[in-house]
């Protein structure tokens, strides 16, 4: 059963602050969120910035790409890969990233609060 709840958003940054086909790190209170922009498809993804493998705040500095159709990021520390769509670990690990929704309005990038 699905419960429909209103998503609440916070303003992360301006579109021009982000890096096409790369990531930036957004701070929200004590939380660090990695925000990625795939410019060819005009798609945005946001996930926790901490790589769960060795718990490093590093995913925003990772290299993005695709495996088939799956958008992904590789952690700069040990190249663990995660799906940006589902947060699933693509390197055979059990861990999973927390994912967030992203929307863009008037050149502002918003990330869902949960």
């Amino acid at each position: 059963m699905e419960t429909v709840t209103e998503t609440s958003w916070f303003l992360a940054c301006r579109v021009e602050d982000t890096i096409p086909n790369g990531g930036v790190c957004v701070k929200r209170d004590d939380e660090q969120i990695a925000l990625f922009y795939f410019s060819r498809q005009d798609r945005w993804y946001a996930v926790q910035n901490e790589c769960p493998h060795r718990r490093q705040m590093a995913l925003s500095r990772g290299m993005v790409g695709t495996a088939g159709e799956e958008p992904k990021v590789a952690c700069p520390f040990h190249k663990m890969q995660f799906s940006l769509a589902s947060g699933e670990c693509l390197s055979g690990g059990e861990c999973r990233l927390k994912t967030y929704r992203v929307k863009v309005a008037d050149g502002n990038v918003f990330i869902s609060k949960n």
């Binding site: 290299m63 790409g65 495996a67 992904k72 590789a74 190249k79």
Partner: peptide, 8 residues
């Protein structure tokens, strides 16, 4: 595609 951490 979008490339990856190998080809980039």
């Amino acid at each position: 595609g979008e490339g990856c951490e190998i080809c980039k």
